[in-house]
């Protein structure tokens, strides 16, 4: 019971802040709400007995990535107001179609998901290690080794791309 209350409170906060992120006018405030959002997600992880994930969530998302967002927001002049709405590159119709498609998809999942079986618990398979950190490490380097490596390659590519974009002459 207590757990359910805690979960729904956290979930309410997460959704509330998520709404604030996209509705706040001031970009910096919106980024700050994003940080709060991430912190509450971390709290959710703590509730799920995944302290390692929680710490990583705070470290990487709240402490790392959003700082970079903030950098961009502070450095780039965002005060070009009305002209953006007359942007010739805007594809209003495609956007509308896409968002309707996403909405339909979500509705379908919600409708069909009710009543189906609960997701299979992978934890049922015994891991040779105990402890949250060790288990995450074990899974990453055994079952999910290839996706893990692909993800890191992707990040490397992104990094090189960023350097190439930023530094015209090397």
């Amino acid at each position: 019971m207590g757990e359910a209350i805690a979960f729904y409170t956290l979930a309410a906060f997460i959704l509330g802040f998520a709404v604030l992120v996209i509705t706040t006018k001031d970009t910096v405030h919106s980024v700050l709400f994003l940080v709060l959002d991430f912190l509450f997600v971390a709290a959710l992880y703590v509730m799920l007995n995944a302290p390692f994930l929680a710490a990583i969530q705070v470290l990487v998302y709240a402490g790392g990535i959003v700082v970079l967002y903030l950098f961009v927001v502070m450095l780039v002049n965002l005060k070009r107001l009305p002209e953006a709405f007359q942007d010739p590159n805007r594809h209003g119709r495609i956007g509308l179609i896409l968002s309707v498609a996403v909405l339909l998809e979500l509705a379908a999942i919600a409708a069909l998901g009710v009543g189906s079986v609960a997701p299979v618990r992978t934890a049922a398979r015994a891991l040779p290690v105990t402890g949250n950190t060790e288990q995450v490490g074990w899974m990453l380097y055994t079952s999910y080794l290839i996706p893990f490596e692909i993800a890191s390659m992707l990040l490397l590519v992104a990094m090189i791309g960023a350097i190439v974009l930023a530094k015209r002459e090397l």
């Binding site: 302290p51 710490a55 990583i56 705070v58 470290l59 709240a62 402490g63 790392g64």
Partner: peptide, 14 residues
């Protein structure tokens, strides 16, 4: 906590 060091690092990053 069993992720104490990580906790310190992540809190410091905030």
């Amino acid at each position: 906590i069993n992720v104490g060091l990580l906790y310190i690092v992540s809190v410091a990053s905030v």
